[in-house]
Design a protein around this nucleic acid. Structure first.
Lengths: 217, 217
DNA sequence: TAAAGAAGTAACTAGTTAGTGCATTAAAGG
DNA sequence: CCTTTAATGCACTAACTAGTTACTTCTTTA
């Protein structure tokens, strides 16, 4: 008799590790670090809990790994936008659109970051490659701002780090608080029309913030 | 012999209830709904855990009460700003400053809201007085916008709800992510100078967003 | 092909946690 | 006073949870 074909290869360390990581991302995103259950992650990954401890050491170490991957991934995607090839205005609009869409496509990112902040950022503090990549992003935005000033599109004196924070904030806040927001405002903030409106508003916000006015400031 | 004066009266239902509520706010803010410990709340309140269940029924009901108080409190404080008495520009700047300072003075508000969103806003959904107060705030901002258009200070076509969300977002995001932010940016986002800079940037953001430009839009 | 090591499993442990049963004690009205 | 009712305290339990022990099974390579 023919063997039942298994989706899961009998022995594959990399695949198991990767399944655990994906399951962990999903579970941590759904319930936070504290609310996540190690048994649930193992089951979701179709792996044994022992393997989770074998590969990742502890629940918190697993969380750290998930977080690191999440941060590296968004920074990588940002770099791949090649903003330096666009006009300053287009570059900023593209960054606002990207940030918004990234949060929509990767909702776990927001929950992971929230969870990490609830715990005083103690997990990422040992990951010293993360500040480097953040400096890269701020540097990129700063270049856009300098270029925009040179062309006269933008005013001077804008802090790149603050602008970065604001671009993240206006999307992040809307999405992280979508449940309370939908209830308090009495309408579904996640329906397509509402999302489109919010994105348009955010682009307007950022462009008006940087644009040189009639007096050139 | 004179009786030892006790700070705590022997029997005082209201006082005990209130101490439990304050303790719960603090514990929920520090650890979130899932991470908070009922025993910890009782101890912090110098009350017995039995009393907590006597007065509030369950951990989740207690959380709901804490949340309701928090929302009612910020909305009340906003109303007391009497923004309608200020010029449109001053009114918006005041609202931005207030929102920022409220988050700074009441850091538990942010954590409570985050926790509630992690749980799909399921606790506040039974509190139907909250959407009313939110409508009040949006209405107030809308009046400011209408008045500002009339005086020519503001451009037309600004959505009051979106503006509200943005005013909250630019402060909330910075503060809720202060731990990861401080680490990623490599500097303490909570030192006085940094806070002042952020507030100034936020006021600039909002005023440029609403201001009528040279062409009157 | 044999042996060694890596991958995988099930059952268990020690500690924790929300919630409760029941007895006791203080206050307030008659 | 004395009775009733509400406030309070202690000790318990049933369920849960991160992490581990002791073992089996597969794969690779010398």
């Amino acid at each position: 008799m023919a063997e039942i074909p298994k989706t899961k290869k009998k022995r594959d360390a990399e695949a198991t590790k990767s399944r655990i990581l994906m399951a962990a991302k999903s579970e941590f995103a759904k319930r936070g670090l504290g609310g996540a259950r190690v048994d649930e992650i193992a089951e979701l990954a179709e792996a044994n809990k022992r393997m989770l401890y074998h590969y990742f050491g502890s629940k918190e170490d697993l969380f750290r790994t998930v977080l690191e991957e999440a941060y590296l991934d968004i920074r990588k995607a940002e770099r791949e936008l090649n903003l330096e090839d666009l006009s300053p205005t287009d570059a900023l609009e593209t960054l606002v659109r990207f940030t918004w869409q990234y949060y929509l496509d990767n909702p776990e990112f927001i929950t992971l970051v929230n969870s990490e902040n609830l715990h005083g950022a103690r997990h990422i503090k040992s990951l010293d490659n993360l500040p480097e990549t953040m400096r890269g992003l701020v540097g990129m935005v700063d270049e856009i701002l300098v270029k925009g000033q040179a062309t006269g599109e933008f005013r001077s004196g804008i802090d790149a780090a603050q602008l970065n924070i604001t671009i993240a904030a206006i999307g992040y806040y809307y999405l992280t608080n979508r449940h309370t927001g939908s209830f308090l405002f009495g309408r579904d903030l996640m329906e397509e029309k509402a999302l489109d409106e919010r994105l348009a508003f955010n682009i307007e916000t950022v462009l008006r913030l940087v644009r040189a006015d009639a007096q050139g400031n």
